[in-house]
Design a protein around this nucleic acid. Structure first.
Length: 204
DNA sequence: TGCCAGGCCCTCTTTAGGGCCTT
């Protein structure tokens, strides 16, 4: 598979348009099914964390007060991933926070996101749930730490992505799993996935 | 004043509604 950077944000809520901000980010570089590098940091965006989010993530206001600023962290993580294609679980969420946070430091995203949630709905349609934790359990993948912390979730999403790439190889004979192919697959209507991937296999 | 995310995906759909997923 292409080298990709799997990222995960923890935030104060669901919508940067409603004033929510990032509190933690992690990025892992995935190369040939192995995590070869990691970045993780809490960040202080100068906003309070609601109590139910503190309970959900374990990230407290006290922890954030001691963290480097969002400006510093977003510069570092942008440098870390460079122009490597990005992946996240429910990427529409992480993409909107990524774009909002880098816009604050006058940067622009240089690459596309692929989404392990959309891919899982197509490649693991029988999973009882497509939440990240439920998919990790369904596919017998290793737990990486406390759920709802950025590095653990990024590591588990990376494991899931590797599993999905293995499925593409074993079930459809796809030899070269590229980020571009993942983006194509996640956009196939669910009812046509089998048909399109079978055709792709024949055209290789 | 009152409201407050948004995209995907299914279905008893398309002049719509509701569950899933992310924090």
């Amino acid at each position: 598979m292409d080298v990709v950077a799997v990222i995960d944000f923890e935030t104060t809520g669901l919508s940067p348009a409603q004033g929510d901000r990032a509190t933690e980010i992690a990025a892992v570089i995935l190369e040939n099914g192995k995590v070869v590098d990691r970045y993780q940091s809490l960040m202080n965006a100068g906003v309070g964390i609601p109590s139910f989010i503190e309970e959900l993530t374990g990230i407290s206001n006290a922890m954030i007060r001691q963290a480097p600023t969002a400006t510093v962290v977003m510069r570092e993580v942008s440098d870390f991933v460079s122009d490597i294609p990005l992946v996240a679980h429910n990427a529409s969420f992480d993409c909107k926070f990524w774009d909002a946070e880098v816009a604050r430091i006058n940067l622009t995203r240089r690459q596309e996101f692929a989404c392990s949630l959309l891919l899982s709905r197509r490649l693991l349609p029988l999973a009882p749930s497509h939440k990240l934790g439920a998919l990790v359990e369904y596919a017998n993948l290793p737990l990486a730490g406390r759920a709802h912390r950025a590095l653990a979730d990024a590591e588990m999403a990376a494991s899931l992505l590797t599993h999905l790439a293995d499925e593409l190889r074993s079930r459809y004979g796809i030899r070269q799993v590229t980020h571009e192919l993942l983006r194509k697959i996640q956009g196939i209507p669910k009812a046509k996935v089998e048909q399109v991937l079978a055709k792709h296999q024949q055209s290789q």
